[in-house]
Amino acid sequence: MKSDKILKRYERSGDHLLAILHDIQDASPEHYLSDADLRAAADYLRLPYSFVHGVASFYTMYSLTPRGRNLIRVCQSPPCHLLGSSTISRELIKLLGVGFGETTADRLFTLEMTSCLGVCGVAPAMMVNDRVYGNLTAERIAGIIDDLRRGQ
């Protein structure tokens, strides 16, 4: 299994759990941690399963359900909100036809909300996978989604 290789990079010490979960999830095309992943991490670190589940479900960057190829995380914190992130959110919901926490039927997009991404200088902002988009407007959104659709 692929996760085996990832696990071996780390010492068997509980403090590496977050890093291991990151790595396993990064290796997943569906941006998520499966039940088997959680168990593999727990077995490797000799932690109770519940403990690993508790950790994985606590942090917003991890997901326990499969997500679309493009993970869109829209910032809704006050600075972005002030500059119109709710318009951006509405536009995305309209364009993708899914609500927050949902994935499009073609599994291309998952829409999530996030707290401040630390790029408020270009608010309103969002992240698609590892990439940040700032100074968003309703018009720009359409173009970005188009590009992403085409870029698949």
């Binding site: 590496h16 890093a19 990151h22 917003t60 960057m61 996030t114 707290s115 401040c116």
Partner: peptide, 25 residues
């Protein structure tokens, strides 16, 4: 370096420590 995973509360120093230990924040 230790990488967080999306939790504002982990900026609070004791939550940060818990997170560093690989736990819930």
């Amino acid at each position: 370096i230790r990488k967080g995973a999306g939790a504002y509360v982990c900026g609070e120093e004791t939550a940060l420590i818990e997170s560093l230990e690989g736990k819930r924040g």
